[in-house]
Design a protein around this nucleic acid. Structure first.
Lengths: 223, 223
DNA sequence: ACCTGAACACCGTTCAAGT
DNA sequence: ACCTGAACACCGTTCAAGT
């Protein structure tokens, strides 16, 4: 005997949208299918989100909220917090690959105004705080931030694509230019996926190493 | 008095598609607008490319061909060749931002079979050769390759987005979490763009440093 | 052999009409 | 105040019909 639901909430729409995109792919997510999934007319979505682009932007931010929830709070160092952020980013978007490629929508959301992408802004804030704690400020803080963002966004985009193709894309590509050792020739999907993951973490380490070096240079010149 | 053009070539379609996407954005590129631009019926595109997805994939590979052409061949070291590759990638996709976000189509193209993404494969081959020359092989070669790909793809995707919004997105975001020094508060579009560019190159350096370190470890353990 | 035009199913979106 | 349904313009795609 739940209270009668007079009107849906945004979250109901977003959760339904996520389910559709996860199960049937991004193209299956239409205003009509979404309305249908929520048990309302197809056009109702327009009073809630304005238009479909805004819906997709909010969907991306909604999933970013799941990243925030997974980061946790007890980390030994700012670098480990950033590692946890990357791990959360990775695991959440691996679970929702259709949403990963909606990243480009963030630009529009942020441009659109305050509060339209609260979780993305919060996530940025977490990264920036960690970088400050590592000793970065000013121009180098921004450069460090952007290095991290670029790498994790690119890596997750390519990986979610590859997973969507059962890693076959990577295997074909690597074999084509003979990059493989004998092991690669017989590598299973899972083994290739593991290697891709190693590359992700190697890249994250490389970026963080560079960030720490910038921080050291900053504090050295300040003292 | 050029010879009468009995039928268009794929390149005519691709160049027209590129012009439409550059001028009016990706949404303006429809089978009808493309047919119109080429002076043929809207549906003719289907005999040339099969369907629109394939067209978009070939468009991305076509632009990748421009990257190849811009890399040049006289480089003092493999690392400098890779730097030139990044510079070419950057300048070409800055000129065609609408195509930059088509990166995800590559996966489908490669999966689809041989020869559907020749330029992307060639570009991969160049990177792999350079990494080999640096001393990488086997698993580390693949990890190095993937680190470079992830970073450059992510950086270019975010930067082309930001440029599309006149850098306003980055300015808003940075000011929002107080990352700025006093200079940032009054930074112009161009100055922010320059800082973004610095971040791109700092990231590239970080990745290449890590790659070189892997190469050194490899050769040390081999000797 | 290559191109066209009508046609189909579907999409984002609007708005007057319902309750 | 919230929802619906018809309607519009447009899109990707197919295919029989033209030359």
């Amino acid at each position: 005997m739940a209270a009668p639901r007079h009107s849906a909430s945004k979250e109901v729409f977003l959760e339904a949208a996520l389910k559709i995109a996860d199960q049937f792919g991004p193209d299956a997510l239409t205003t009509r299918s979404l309305g249908n999934a929520v048990g309302l007319d197809a056009t109702t979505v327009y009073r809630y989100f304005g238009n479909k682009d805004a819906l997709l932007g909010e969907l991306f931010d909604y999933v970013t909220g799941k990243v925030l929830a997974e980061i946790g709070s007890d980390h030994a160092s700012p670098r480990e917090l950033l590692m946890a952020m990357c791990a959360a980013y990775r695991s959440v978007f691996y679970a929702h690959p259709s949403v990963a490629r909606l990243n480009g929508r963030m630009a529009d959301m942020i441009q659109a105004g305050q509060g339209t992408a609260p979780n993305a802004m919060k996530l940025s804030g977490i990264v920036v705080s960690a970088l400050r704690e590592m000793g970065l400020s000013g121009r180098n803080l921004i450069i460090g931030y952007q290095m991290i963002e670029s790498f994790i966004v690119g890596a997750i985009m390519l990986e979610t694509e590859a997973h969507g193709h059962g890693m076959g894309v990577r295997i074909l590509r690597y074999r084509a230019f003979g990059a493989g050792t004998p092991e690669l020739e017989t590598a299973s999907q899972d083994e290739v996926a593991e290697m891709s993951d190693d590359a992700l973490w190697a890249g994250v380490d490389a970026v963080f190493d560079a960030v720490e070096k910038m921080a050291d240079a900053d504090t050295a010149s300040t003292n």
